[in-house]
Write a protein that binds this DNA or RNA. Structure first.
Lengths: 231, 231
DNA sequence: TATTAAAGTTGACACACATCAATTTATTTT
DNA sequence: AAAATAAATTGATGTGTGTCAACTTTAATA
C-alpha cells in the first residue's frame, strides 16, 4: 500500500496539526482519492462568502487573507492563514455555506478535501473529532480577543495590535515586507485607510517603526505592546 | 436499569439539542453519577473569565448573561443563554480556562457536568462529537455577525439589532420586561449607557418602540429591521 | 518609454459619540 | 416608611475618527 503520508504534501500539513495522526492507511487512501490541488495567483479568490462549502482547504504554500464582507462592501480581515493551516469555515456541519472569503495574498498552493470525506473520518475516528473541536475553540478564543480590541480600543491600539500580529504571527520577524495594502491594514483594524496611514505616520515620527511603502520595521516593540495594551 | 432520560432533568435539555440522543444507558449513567445541580440568584456569577473550566454548564431554568471582560472593566455581552442551552467555553479541549463570564440574570438552575465525562462520551460516540462541532460552528457564525455589526454599524443600528435579538431570541415576544439594565444593553451593543439611552429615546419619539423602564414594546418591527440593516 | 490604473498620502472639515457632571427615578436595605 | 444605594436620564462639551477631495507615488499595461 502506498504511503500517502509521504506522497501527498497536504497530508504533511495535517500531520503537523495532529489531525490525521490517528488515521489508518485505508482512511488516508480514501481521502487522497478525491483531494485536488490548485494554484492561486495573488489577488485570486479561493472561495467566497455566500458560496457552497463543498471542500475544506489546506494551505500547502502561500499566504491567504480570510475576511468577512458586509452589505456595504466593507470588510473585516479575521486572520492571515499560512502554509500548513486548514481553513474550516463555520458552515461545516451546519448549512454547508461559506461565511468567510479567502483570497491569496501571494502565490498559494491549496489542497481541497471533500466535506463528505472529512465527515467519514469523523465518524470512524473520535480523536480526529476532538482535535477538530479543539481547533475550532482556539479560533473562538482568537475571535473573542478580536471582538474586545475592535470594540474597545482606538486607532493607535488597534494598529499596534495589527503590526504585532504581522510581525509575530504572519512574517515571523520584526522587519518584513508585507503583501497587505494600507486598506488591508485598515480592514484588519476596523478603521479607514486614511486613519491607518495617519497612525502609521505618527508611529514613524515617534521612532516606533520605520516604513517604506510595504516594508515595515519595528524599532520599539515594547512600546507597540504597551500601546496595544492600553488601547 | 434506571431511565436517566426521565429522571435527570438536565438530560432532557441535552436530548432536545440532539446531543445525547445516540447515547447508551451506560453512558448516560456515568454522566449522571458526577453531575450536580446548583441554583443561582439574579446577579450571581456561575463562572468567571480566567477561572478553571472543570465542568460544562447546562441551563435547566433561567436566563444567563455571557460576556467578555477586558482589563479596563469594560464588557461585551456575547449572548443571553436560556434554558436547555449548554455553555461550552472555548477553553474546552484547549487549556481548560474560562474566557467568558456567565452570570444569572434571573433565578437560574444549572447542571454541571464534568469535562472528563464529556470527553469520555466524545471518545466513544462520534455522532456526539459531530454535533458538538456543529454547535461550535453555529456559535462562530453568530460571532462573525457580531464582529461585523459592532465594527461597522453605528449606535442606532446596533441598538435596533439588540432589541430584535431580545424580542426574537431571548423573550420570544415583541413586548417584554427584560432583566437587562441600560448598561447591559450598552454592553451588548458596544457603546456607553448614555448613548444607548439616547437612541432608545429617539426610537420612542419616532414611534418605533414604547418603554417604561425595563418594559419594552416594539411597535414598528419592520422599521427596526431596516435600521438594523442599514446600520 | 509613455500611458493608465491602483495605491498611498495629506489637509480641511464635519459630526457621531464618549466623557463628565448634575439630577431624577427606581430599587434595596434598615 | 425612611434612608441609602443603584439605575436611569438629561445637558453641555470635547475630540477621535470618518468623509471628501486633491495630489503624489508606485505598479501595471500597452
Amino acid at each position: 500500500m502506498v504511503d500517502f503520508k509521504k506522497t501527498a504534501s497536504c497530508f504533511d500539513c495535517y500531520l503537523q496539526q495532529n489531525l490525521f495522526c490517528y488515521m489508518s492507511d485505508d482512511q488516508l487512501g480514501n481521502l487522497n482519492k478525491n483531494r485536488l490541488e490548485v494554484v492561486f495567483k495573488p489577488g485570486e479568490t479561493i472561495f467566497k462568502s455566500g458560496g457552497i462549502l463543498t471542500h475544506l482547504v489546506c494551505i500547502i504554500k502561500g499566504l491567504v487573507k480570510i475576511y468577512l464582507e458586509d452589505e456595504n462592501n466593507k470588510n473585516v480581515i479575521l486572520r492571515i492563514a499560512k502554509a500548513k493551516e486548514t481553513i474550516i469555515g463555520p458552515g461545516f456541519l451546519v448549512d454547508n455555506r461559506h461565511y468567510i472569503t479567502a483570497t491569496a495574498l501571494e502565490e498559494t498552493v491549496a489542497c481541497f478535501i471533500s466535506v463528505e470525506d472529512y465527515k467519514e473520518v469523523m465518524r470512524t475516528n473520535p480523536e480526529f473529532s476532538m482535535e477538530l473541536v479543539k481547533l475550532q475553540n482556539e479560533k473562538i478564543i482568537r475571535y473573542f480577543d478580536k471582538i474586545l480590541s475592535l470594540t474597545h480600543k482606538q486607532t493607535h491600539g488597534k494598529i499596534a495590535e495589527s503590526l504585532l500580529y504581522l510581525a509575530d504571527y504572519v512574517h515571523d520577524s520584526d522587519s518584513f515586507e508585507t503583501p497587505l495594502t494600507r486598506q488591508d491594514l485598515a480592514d484588519m483594524s476596523a478603521m479607514t485607510k486614511e486613519s491607518a496611514i495617519r497612525v502609521l505616520k505618527e508611529f514613524v515620527e515617534e521612532g516606533i517603526i520605520v516604513t517604506n511603502n510595504r516594508q515595515i520595521k519595528i524599532l520599539n516593540k515594547e512600546m507597540l505592546r504597551k500601546i496595544s495594551k492600553i488601547g
